[in-house]
Nucleic acid binder design. Structure first.
Length: 369
RNA sequence: GCCUUGGUAGUUAAGUGGCUAUAACACGACCCUGUCACGGUCGAGUCCCGAGUUCGAUUCUCGGUCAGGGCG
């Protein structure tokens, strides 16, 4: 029924990842709270690191010493590097005292540290750590930013994408095919369909290995931008991977797979694990097809493990979960509650493993339509 | 026995002769969409006891009591 199956894998540098895929954010070169081994056991086949945070945290040289981010992380899967474009929004646009942005690039002033990124520099850094998928530096905005800001954002994003491509070609021209990473372009334009189209057309003209939906995917009122996501997916070439950056909640991912997206990253499963929310599938989930999943946001539920009612709950987090915490009745809610209350780091680990397994299981289900 | 310092929320502290007495942690509920994130929002919960001075005392005075310190 769908064109999802057109693209079953993302392949790069002799690595292979099943699609659609969820990639947790390993911003600083690790997924908070868990080891790379934990990730593999959860079925995670790729992660997203962030070149701004790696640079700001002065980790680039350490990564180079280890001969690449894969070795550094001891993670054999696909590693996407985000360009720092999101931080242009989350740090500078949100708080101009954190830096300046102009047509050349962005200068971050954060925690008394200066970090300068241009499109060329971002690409160079991403290549220097041995990233598998290089993201173009973009000027990321909120959907409700002013039209003027959206215009500037798209203009810059397109120009920067051109510069990224040029730099990428220059730096990778001598690489063998099985050493060469991919380069993805990011489509901006906020909630403006014309700008989205303009941006997508320009990026397709430049030609990338994959295309991403960029920008904050949620309206000011807190509604997921289904229509925009759908529209942008249709602007992307069907034969190349489509990446919905920052998406999202389980029902949003289901919707986006329906629109044609293949790749997702989001802080939700990991951050919420640390902050109390643990997901589980309702039993009907396993009988649902994609269409039914799309029309039924209630295929899952969550518990807030630190709530008082779990203090004496001897059930596992989820009865139909096979994660390390839940399987073999390894840990009860009562135990994890207690570990959280005692600030035991293992609580965060178990919770993160649990939520990541929930997400990988969701993706497995979406692959088998 | 004498002298001395102190007693404010569950804990540790800040503060005031007059507005709904403050913060952190802990507690309870909620939130989180390319991580500024074990973070954020909201809520509940306090001036040791008695007497005095005063229009008004958690605040000043005296006594009690409890805890710490010093001297015997």
């Amino acid at each position: 029924m769908n064109k999802l199956k057109d693209l079953q894998f993302l392949e790069v540098k002799n690595k292979k990842m099943q699609l659609p895929a969820f990639l947790p954010d390993a911003t600083l070169g690790f997924v908070r709270g868990v080891s790379s081994n934990d990730l593999l056991k959860c079925g995670i086949e790729g992660v997203v690191v962030n070149i701004y945070h790696l640079l700001h945290g002065e980790l680039i040289n350490k990564i180079k010493e280890k001969k690449g981010i894969g070795n550094y992380m001891k993670f054999p899967g696909i590693i996407i590097s985000d360009s720092g474009g999101f931080q242009v929004m989350s740090l500078i646009h949100d708080n101009p005292q954190n830096g300046k942005i102009n047509d050349d690039g962005a200068t971050f002033l954060y925690n008394n540290k200066k970090t300068h990124l241009t499109p060329e520099k971002s690409v160079e850094l991403q290549l220097s750590i041995g990233s598998d998928v290089v993201m173009c530096l973009d000027d990321c905005t909120y959907p409700d930013s002013s039209l003027e800001e959206q215009n500037i954002s798209v203009k810059r994003t397109v120009e920067w994408a051109g510069r990224c491509k040029k730099e990428f070609l220059k730096l990778t021209k001598d690489m063998k095919a099985n050493e060469k990473p991919l380069l993805f372009g990011i489509i901006q334009g906020g909630n403006n369909l014309d700008l989205r189209k303009k941006c997508a057309d320009a990026l397709k003209e430049i030609e990338f290995d994959g295309y991403a939906f960029g920008g904050w995917p949620v309206s000011q009122e807190g509604n997921f931008l289904n229509d925009i996501l759908k529209y942008v997916a249709e602007l992307m070439p069907e034969n190349k991977p489509r990446y919905a950056m920052g998406v999202g909640r389980p029902e949003d991912i289901v919707a986006c797979v329906g629109f044609g997206y293949d790749m997702f990253d989001c802080v939700i499963p990991t951050r919420e694990a640390r902050n109390n929310r643990l997901y589980s599938f309702k039993s009907n989930f396993f009988g649902f097809g994609l269409r039914k999943l799309k029309n039924n946001k209630k295929f899952y539920e969550y518990i807030r493990i630190r709530n008082l009612k779990y203090k004496t709950d001897k059930k596992p987090i989820s009865k139909n979960c096979d994660c390390f915490a839940c399987s073999n009745r390894n840990f009860t809610r009562e135990q994890i509650y207690k570990m959280f209350k005692e600030r035991d780091k293992e609580a965060i680990r178990l919770a993160t493993i649990h939520n990541l397994r929930f997400y990988t299981k969701l993706m497995e289900r979406l692959r088998n339509q």
